[in-house]
Design a protein around this nucleic acid. Structure first.
Lengths: 168, 168
DNA sequence: TCCAAACCCTTGGATGTCCTAGTATATTGC
DNA sequence: GCAATATACTAGGACATCCAAGGGTTTGGA
């Protein structure tokens, strides 16, 4: 990561918006751009922690999801829905996790269309170790204050519900 | 995008974290995961709007940045720094924008190492039209309340400053 | 019963991002 | 003045994401 910029580029963009007569949408534009940039920063931290484990965020998410399933196994389409990513992304992740011996594919007992993803003991152990480091190095040092964390969960939760993520 | 899930998957993940004795980091984990998911939703909306223009978000950002530069031209390294992406990503975006006739590369007048990216009239016109639609369709209907927009800008601004994005 | 529609997963192609390495040009120091 | 260092951009490779298309399986209505 380079040297800090002398000025906040998002604040500058907001000024540019206002100068061009788009004041009514300048603030949401700045908020949305800030979300994009924050995601980029956080993803960078997470991937840096996971790299020594040979994991990417996408693969870790799948591993973690499986480790919380009672049986340690889930159908591909369930995983796709819960992780809210495209089915092909799950296929891709499973391919690599399987090559690494962390999961195995097995046929669904009653539905021939469905493939189950199952955690191996190695996969379960790796998920546990990776989570421990993520907890201490990323989530435990997020840089957000406690109140801001609550605000984020509230604001983004409302947004996600309105966007159709869940009907809770 | 599929049917809404019956339950919020991030709230469930938070419960799983608490059940496993990681209550101290469960809330920041939920906040960070929510940021990742929100970014995904917003990016999807933006790319859907830009697709008819033949633009992706990465290319649009570069066009918009150039359109705000007084001369309509910037060195590659400046663009990379301001957009906060890897230099190779700028190279990639410029390649495609140049193929589309929206920008041209020109040599820097005094520094032979540097390449200037310059907006063509077509590029400037397209940026203007794309911005108008983004403003009305995405930023103008973000789904965030006015107060929440302010909160997001404040919280994420502090985060980005602490992360070393800028020293303002 | 049987066939069309729906569903599940995979493959192939396009895009974007990053990293590492390499080439070319500037600047600095001796 | 020349070598060493720093900077700017590009090339190639690894991953992840999406879309479109295809083949196998199940379901439900004619």
């Amino acid at each position: 990561m380079g040297t800090p910029l002398p000025r906040d580029p998002i604040a500058d963009a907001r000024l540019n918006w206002e100068r061009h007569g788009w004041s009514d949408v300048a603030a949401p534009m700045a908020a949305i751009t800030a979300i994009m940039r924050t995601q980029q920063i956080l993803l960078g931290r997470i991937e840096a922690v996971l790299k020594p484990f040979g994991l990417t965020f996408a693969r870790y998410e799948l591993l973690a999801l499986l480790s919380f399933a009672r049986s340690g196994a889930l159908p591909m389409n369930k995983a796709s829905a819960l992780l809210q990513v495209h089915p092909t992304s799950v296929t891709n992740a499973v391919d690599r996790l399987q090559d690494a011996g962390l999961v195995i594919r097995s046929p669904h007992p009653t539905d021939g269309r469905t493939t189950l993803i199952e955690l191996t003991p190695e996969g379960r152990a790796l998920a546990k170790r990776a989570t421990a480091v993520l907890n201490s190095e990323v989530f435990g040092r997020s840089g957000f204050g406690d109140q801001d964390v609550d605000q984020l969960i509230r604001i983004l939760g409302t947004f996600r519900r309105n966007a159709g993520d869940f009907s809770d």
